[in-house]
Amino acid sequence: MFDFVFDAAQFGEFLATGLRLSMPLIFAAMGGLLCERAGVFNIALEGQLLLGAFGAALGAHLTGMAGGGVAVALVFGAASGLGLALLGVTLRVNQIVVGIAVILFAIGFTSFMSRVAFEGGGNSLRLDGFRPIDIPILSDIPVIGPVLFAQDLLFYLMLAVVAAIQIVLFRTGLGLSIRAVGESPATADAAGVPVFTLRYGVIVAGSMIASLGGAYIVLSQVFLFSDNMSAGKGFIGLAAIVLGRWNPVLALLACLLFGLFDAFQLRLQFQSPDMPFQVFAALPYVISIMALVGLIGRAQPPAAVGRPYDREMR
């Protein structure tokens, strides 16, 4: 059952699969985590992955460059964030409802626009995506080398994003303000923190990060666009935030856990053909529930998450 662990090539392949399956989850989780730290639920991650995927396909198709795809994906992500902030922060609409609205909009919008924008449909695209960059010397390390040091640009960007969020949230004044807004917006407001501006900024930034997850699927994995291709990854990202206790590094590990167990279950299917495959398909979720109740204990969300801030309200 575990014999692939002792075969260097097979094990490297397994790790690489797990990592690739984790990448969209990581971007989604980081974007959502940032928003929730500022007291705003971003349920729309699934839709933002989809918008990012469509934006990436559109940009790469029009400019012929992967970089153009990332740029358009970020624009789409920012636009969805702006909409989310306008409805959820300024107009104080229920954030769950707003999030679902963005998801539904994203599904319809991207399916329709892909028929308009791509002749012959998004399925027939062959986009120029990112190619792996081998870092000299480091990429020659057996097993770990090819997995960690022969990745494409978005992988290194992901590492930078996680590090940046960790540092900004816990090592800077700005991060302190963001967390204050998420815990007690009234207190932060009284202390002179611009609650609304900060929430707007964080939602837009978080949405842009989430859209990068969609860009990864298109520009690094499959090089085409297909309807609803995010396939529920945004929701797993949401779960990873809770599993990671609203901490960027722990959330990263949670996403890797999902990804690696997903890769693991794909392998397990052959080793035990008599077992129903659904048992294996459920494995990542079973593991995360066990981790949630057993290892980590009670998760404590930011106190003000999900509650729109109103200055006049007691």
């Binding site: 399956l21 699927i217 994995q221 499959v222 609803n228 291709m229």
Partner: peptide, 8 residues
Amino acid sequence: ADIAKAKE
């Protein structure tokens, strides 16, 4: 419909 998963 999950292309990425099918590819992996």
